[in-house]
Design a protein around this nucleic acid. Structure first.
Lengths: 352, 352
DNA sequence: CTGAAAGCGCTTACAG
DNA sequence: CTGAAAGCGCTTACAG
């Protein structure tokens, strides 16, 4: 094993002092090269670069951090890792941060733990904090007060109702308005809601979009929509979709178009409707949400709405980097336009 | 806002020196309390604890790390964040590490980047490294040589062929042996393979389990199995399942039982078979893999195999902590027994 | 329990 | 480019 042998020949170096001795330069000079400061000649820089490769030496990040240098680390607080959109945001965030030279310190936040986690981020000298998802409003508000007071760069993904600034989310109102308009254009006048009920802000915004589209056509939202969520226990989303479809199949004056909270519920409902002998889209249309792979599972494929995660994350990171450069910088809440993805599960309304 | 006001009254403290002054104690004493050393009286400890709460002071992790103290951080290298089992492992790992007092530094590893990432982990003084998923064998092997030489605690999740030690994975051979035996007991003698083909180690182990079960009953694996993977382009897994089902539906002497690489392929195939008029399980049986929520989507529900992620991760963490306590400790590869989850998609073979 | 001191590994002026 | 020095915030003996 000549390779392992040649490796072993190189001593393991653990400080710039040792490393400087190895290269045959002063510590100061090495430090300059390592930090890209002007002064050293190209030839010296090259010598250091080569020694760096030979030894695999990395300056101790702790000593660096102690001297107030950048840590190039961002803390990410996650609501959980349970749903595909949240994971997609984490993946995009991690990837884009890495591209910009930042590492990610990731913590899933149980309720009541946010202070402890932020202290840890603090002690690790993160340069910014990103929150993905929804947290307890009071707790999050307290954290934001602290972050702002310390001018710690931060961005909220998804949750927009806590803070008038430094939050990025897709535009839920516009999303549902667009979906509803698409279905209205196809002749639908009676809408079933699958899982879109409740009082949380994200749901209220979805409902607001639906109402806005209906009102613009002179329709009364109360008369034009129907929800049976209250009749069915919410288990896992596929089963919830099944159950809702069974309920809707029985009632007289069944809606011709269905809007689902997410793709899982939509797919569950679609398959159940089909099993009950209803044809899609001839008898009824369904639209999901999040545009996951699962949309391709059904026949016909499921129309859905894409949150545009990459855009959202890019906007969030730009805002974070801006704050890092310019402490105290704030932007008003950014609303990312979502993308409606029409597919065959949404078709013309059946003749009355 | 009395609350915010009372907060603002407390100065922001950034060093133990300031903090000690605030409490009215010596730095040394505060340090002892902070690190749980014996000496200070309960009353003093209580005083410090209260001041800690009042001020929200956290000792600088960098200064601590510099003095060689534990960082209580583990580095996690991910193959990607694209599949549910990988995300499930990350979530379990993060959660269990947190419970044991460790933070997670997470990096998704593009090919060729492993050395850079490990140097970063190194500079951050992580106490151990976990690899989740499959990496380029040569590259990973190089990293393991380095980790071992430096006695850096490490565990591989999933990938078992690189190293005879410090790897944990579910037992793929046993998993497929159990599934195959279950179907053999139900009278099946002819098996269709969905996506289980190729030369990577994880696939070879799956095939080995199938073969072992067949041979034990005196069946010839070549005669008793059939794969049509080569006829169909691999797109997203649902569509791949659809396409494979269409191919299998056409051939004479169609297998009566199907084993899929994962739940997505299995669900795609199941729905397509049904669409083609085949009844499940009366006409044919299907078994998926990973036991995701999606198994509950179909009628009948999909039988599957659960990787037992929590067990796997617990084993991995125990091994890692053991290495942290006892540098250089090694365990042979641990094989976690998976759990077959029978459901109605797997039924008795049709009468010949 | 206090207080003064050394040292972890780095960066940053500063004089040569 | 070198070399000696200060300092970041902490922990760890050590003498009192």
């Amino acid at each position: 094993m000549p390779r392992a042998a040649s490796r072993r020949a190189v001593p393991r170096i653990t400080s710039t002092a040792e490393f400087a001795r190895y290269v045959g330069l002063a510590r100061t000079t090495v430090s300059k090269v390592l930090n890209g400061h002007p002064g050293p000649k190209p030839k010296t820089v090259e010598r250091v670069r080569r020694a760096l490769e030979e030894t695999g030496f990395t300056p101790n990040a702790f000593a660096k951090g102690l001297r107030g240098k950048r840590t190039a680390t961002v803390g990410i607080c996650m609501e959980n890792l349970l749903t595909p959109p949240i994971v997609a945001k984490l993946a995009a965030l991690q990837h884009q941060l890495r591209t910009r030279g930042f590492a990610s310190l990731i913590e899933v936040l149980p309720a009541g733990e946010s202070q402890r986690v932020l202290q840890h981020f603090d002690s690790m000298r993160v340069e910014g904090v990103v929150f993905i998802g929804h947290f307890l409003p009071n707790e999050l508000a307290d954290r934001l007060v602290e972050l702002r007071r310390r001018q710690m760069p931060h961005v909220l993904l998804d949750q927009t109702e806590i803070s008038p600034t430094n939050a990025v989310a897709f535009d839920r109102v516009a999303a549902m308005e667009e979906v509803t308009n698409h279905l209205l254009d196809l002749g639908h006048r009676h809408f079933g809601l699958l899982g879109i009920s409740g009082t949380v802000q994200s749901i209220r915004e979805r409902l607001q979009g639906i109402e806005r589209a209906l009102r613009a056509r002179g329709l009364d939202p109360a008369a034009a929509t129907r929800s049976l969520d209250y009749l069915v226990p919410r288990t896992i989303d596929f089963a919830f979709g099944h159950d809702l479809a069974r309920q809707f199949a029985q009632i007289p004056g069944r809606p011709t178009a269905f809007l689902a909270l997410n793709d899982e519920i939509a797919v569950g409902a679609l398959l159940e409707f089909q099993k009950l002998g209803l044809r899609i889209p001839q008898d009824l249309s369904i639209v999901g949400f999040n545009n996951q792979d699962i949309c391709q599972l059904t026949h016909p494929a499921l129309a859905s709405v894409d949150q545009q995660v990459d855009d959202t994350v890019r906007t969030a990171i730009n805002l974070l980097l801006r704050q890092i450069e310019e402490p105290g910088y704030e932007d008003p809440v950014a609303r990312i336009p979502p993308l409606f993805v029409p597919r065959d599960s949404a078709g013309p309304a059946p003749a009355a």
